[in-house]
Every structure is written in C-alpha cells, then in structure tokens.
Computed example of a mutant assay.
Amino acid sequence: MMDEILIQALSGLSRGMVLFVVASGLTLIFGTMRIANFAHGSFYMLAAFLTYSVATMVGDRTWGFLAALCLAPPIVAGVGALIEWGLLKRIATRPHQYQLILTYAITLIVADGIKMLWGSDYRTVARPAGLDGAITILDMPFPTYNAMLILVGVLIAVGLHLLLTRTRFGKTIRAAVADGEMIGALGVNVQRLFTGVFALGAGLAGLGGVLAAPVGSVSLGIDSSIIIESFAVIIIGGVGNVMGALIGAVLIGVVHAVGILFVPKLAIAFVFIALCAVLLIRPQGLLGRNT
C-alpha cells in the first residue's frame, strides 16, 4: 500500500510541476501588475494546440515535440506582449474591473479562435521516443515522461530563482512586486517592464501547455481547469512569490493525486479544503508578506 501511495504522490508531483510552471507566470503578472489575468489559461490552451499542430507537421514524435518546445512558448509570449501593449496598457489607469472584464473577454476570443482553427474535437500528442516507457521505483512502474516533468519543474524553479535574484530584470520585477510606484519614481520604464513581465508570464503558461500536451487530451476547456488551479496555487503560496507558487503547486498536485487513491469522488474537494485552511490560518499565503 505504501508503494502505491508513493507512486500516486509522485504522479501528483509531476502534475504539480506543470501547474507550477503555469502558475509561476500568473503570480509574476498578478504580483507585478496587480492584474488577475483570466486569459492566462488561454495561453496554456493555445500552446497545447500549437504543440499538436507542430508535432503533426513534423511527423517524428521526438523532433515534433522538441520543435513545439522551441516554438510554442515564444509564440505565446509574443501574443501576450501584443495583448499587454495593444490592450491592457490602454486601460491601465482605469479601475481594475475593466482589466478583469478585458482579460475574460480575451479568453472567449481565444477559445472561439481555437475552435475555428482546430475544431472542437479532442486531440492527442504522442510522447517523445525514449520517454514513453516507465522506470521502476520500489518494484512499481512510474512513467518516464512524468519523471522528466518533475526534473523540468525543478530546473524551471531554479532558473526563475536565479532570474529574479541575480539579474537586473529580475530584481526590478521583485521591486515592482514590493512597491510598483517607487520603481517608477526611480526612473524605471514601468510600461516596458509590464510588457516584459506579461510576455514572460504568457511564455511560462505556453511552456506548461507544451509539457502537458502529451499527458492528456488537447481540447477546448482545458483553459478553465488550469486557471482555477493556478489561482489556488498563488493564493496558497502567496501573491508574487515564485517559491510560494512551487510549494502551492506541489501541495495541490500531491493532495489531489493521493485523494484520488482514497476518495476519488472527493479528490478535488481536498484541494479546496487545503486552500480554505491556508486562507483561514495564513491569509497572505504560505510565503506571502503581511500588508
């Protein structure tokens, strides 16, 4: 029984790592720009469909996946930059509800655009050769691709930590999370920063979409589920805190996966029970700051 729990927890960890990649982009946008970007899930879904198209055009499942990995996140990041520059910055001084309504409208537009281009059928993306088997952990099989997701999630977490702590761009983002008005007064081009942060966040959502495509179906509606979980992650971890997003994503992934093993019908409820517990005990999130 303990072997099964461990494998199930590792499966939840791999899912949590994909969720972390997506949610880390959302928490950067939310923490820096104070925008609850409902379109973030649309970037994830768009990247998943782009992965399907690129993989189909290339033909070879390994090279197709690698091509999608190189192409989809930058394309989605570019779409995000255009949305921020062309739409969001024009209503930046208006009340926040305008931004909420606009980002929600973008989700509807993207969904309809995807439906026009790809249709409403379910799509699948084959796992790369060499990652479609399983490794043995305590005499039990564990998918190799899922193990790769855990490794990639750790590398992304380390990379983001270094970006935010060792580069000028990252330090400026952290300063903006702490006090956005102050960095503007110090001469930082806030608009350019916002565009860069939004593009980075969209690119991370796109990367998550590429990574998730081979482990599930690519279909309309996957944006809704990922955005709900992503908001839960940043609330649990603390707004604007990438390491908090990592902890929140791992917690949600593992709790959901282990919950499926014991009480399948209530598995998703355990996620929101954990969310409610954090809100009651530590409203600012596990690693969030008191305001």
Results as ranks from 00 to 15, higher is better:
232 A>D: 10
235 I>W: 04
222 I>N: 04
234 I>Y: 00
202 A>R: 05
229 E>M: 13
196 G>D: 12
185 A>E: 09
196 G>R: 07
197 V>E: 03
212 A>T: 15
179 D>L: 09
189 N>S: 15
184 G>R: 14
214 P>H: 04
213 A>S: 15
215 V>S: 11
186 L>Q: 14
219 S>E: 05
182 M>I: 12
208 G>D: 02
188 V>N: 06
208 G>V: 07
231 F>R: 01
228 I>L: 14
173 I>N: 08
212 A>P: 02
192 R>K: 14
228 I>T: 12
175 A>W: 08
172 T>C: 04
215 V>C: 06
202 A>H: 08
201 G>R: 10
171 K>P: 01
178 A>R: 11
219 S>N: 13
213 A>N: 06
233 V>K: 00
203 G>T: 05
171 K>F: 02
175 A>V: 08
165 T>Q: 13
199 A>W: 13
175 A>Q: 07
175 A>E: 05
214 P>T: 05
210 V>Q: 03
170 G>L: 00
231 F>C: 03
194 F>H: 15
214 P>A: 12
178 A>V: 13
181 E>L: 10
165 T>G: 00
233 V>W: 04
186 L>K: 11
228 I>D: 01
219 S>M: 11
197 V>C: 04
178 A>L: 12
206 G>Q: 13
196 G>I: 09
163 L>C: 08
190 V>D: 08
207 L>M: 14
226 I>M: 13
166 R>E: 13
233 V>N: 00
197 V>R: 07
170 G>K: 00
240 G>A: 04
203 G>A: 12
180 G>M: 09
174 R>G: 06
233 V>L: 00
223 D>L: 02
227 I>C: 00
211 L>A: 00
206 G>V: 09
208 G>S: 08
196 G>C: 10
229 E>N: 13
169 F>E: 06
163 L>N: 06
239 V>L: 14
224 S>D: 13
172 T>Y: 03
227 I>F: 02
182 M>T: 14
179 D>A: 06
209 G>T: 05
207 L>I: 10
184 G>P: 11
234 I>H: 01
185 A>N: 12
213 A>R: 02
215 V>A: 09
178 A>D: 14
200 L>R: 06
207 L>Y: 09
188 V>I: 15
183 I>W: 08
165 T>A: 03
212 A>F: 07
239 V>Y: 02
220 L>S: 01
190 V>N: 11
166 R>V: 04
205 A>R: 09
167 T>E: 07
184 G>Q: 13
232 A>M: 11
210 V>I: 10
